[in-house]
């Protein structure tokens, strides 16, 4: 059975999206993307200075990967919009993850500024992925504004704490008619699997892969786990119960029936 996630006309079979930050080298990042068969990878823009790498990260993202530009560093909607336009002008395409952050301790997104940026960029033809705190009302507004998907956080960026926002994410999955992609905070493959079992369309993972001892293997582990969770979701996960329900026959046969 072919199970594809379709966003803006692009069909995606690997529902693990990978972020390219924090890898020890671009070469290592490239291998991780390749070995995990990643189809979507995020890249960011930064002010260049004399100390900037001379290597171009774009040379290391496999050509089979859809690039999603992250507006990280933006502190309001206007800056996010500028970054998106710069990225597009530089030939990075029109898939934009809107990340607007004003809180340096928890790196939690500013949902209202993010919504403003979505409104502007969707009208300009960008495929917009708002990184947001999981909130149903704002999620609905993101959908109305033309977002391509919503990307609620599992826990703070880089915290590796897993899906602490599980109940709110479930509500978004049930109520919003857009792909829900959990972004941020997933620390291990089982947590990515959990998201997929809940019915998320995809997950985006960066830190847990990039800072592991073997990022190539870890990317593969996440990929397998995301696939397993998706398969389980599609198979219809049975309900839980408080008492036992036998899985082997219990009819007695080495004793008499009374």
């Amino acid at each position: 059975m072919e199970d594809l996630l379709e966003i803006a006309g692009k069909k995606i079979s690997n529902r693990l999206f990978i972020g390219t930050g924090k890898f020890a080298s671009y070469a290592l990042m490239k291998r991780a993307l390749e070995e995990a068969n990643a189809e979507v990878a995020t890249v960011a823009l930064r002010r260049a200075d004399a100390g900037s790498k001379t290597e171009n990260i774009m040379d290391y993202v496999p050509k089979t990967c859809q690039i999603m530009i992250n507006t990280s560093g933006a502190r309001n909607a206007e800056e996010a919009v500028r970054i998106a336009r710069l990225a597009k002008a530089a030939g990075a395409g029109n898939w934009i993850k809107i990340e607007v952050i004003r809180d340096n301790k928890y790196l939690l997104p500013d949902n209202l500024e993010t919504l403003k940026a979505v409104e502007i960029l969707a009208k300009e033809g960008f495929v917009v992925f708002p990184y947001m705190s999981p909130d149903l009302s704002i999620g609905r507004r993101m959908a109305e504004a033309g977002a391509g998907a919503v990307m609620p956080l599992g826990s703070p960026i880089g915290s590796n704490r897993g899906v602490k926002t599980r109940e709110l994410i479930e509500i978004m999955i049930n109520e919003i008619k857009l792909p829900v992609i959990v972004d941020a905070g997933l620390g291990k493959p089982s947590e990515a699997c959990e998201c997929m079992e809940l019915g998320c369309a995809a997950v985006l993972v960066n830190t847990a892969i990039a800072v592991s001892e073997d990022p190539v293997k870890m990317a593969q582990a996440f990929s397998a786990s995301v696939y397993a969770g998706r398969l389980a979701y599609l198979s219809g996960i049975p309900v839980t119960g408080k008492i036992a329900s036998a899985s082997s026959p219990l009819t007695g046969f080495l004793r008499e029936n009374k």
């Binding site: 972020g19 930050g21 890898f23 930064r46 002010r47 990260i57 830190t207």
Partner: peptide, 25 residues
């Protein structure tokens, strides 16, 4: 656009942002 870089002559108090792609989540 890159092909216009040489045609832009900078003036006092201009503002220039120079950016490049880097790894990011």
């Amino acid at each position: 656009p890159k092909h216009q870089w040489q045609n832009i002559s900078l003036e006092e108090n201009d503002s220039v942002e120079i950016v490049s792609f880097v790894g990011g989540g």
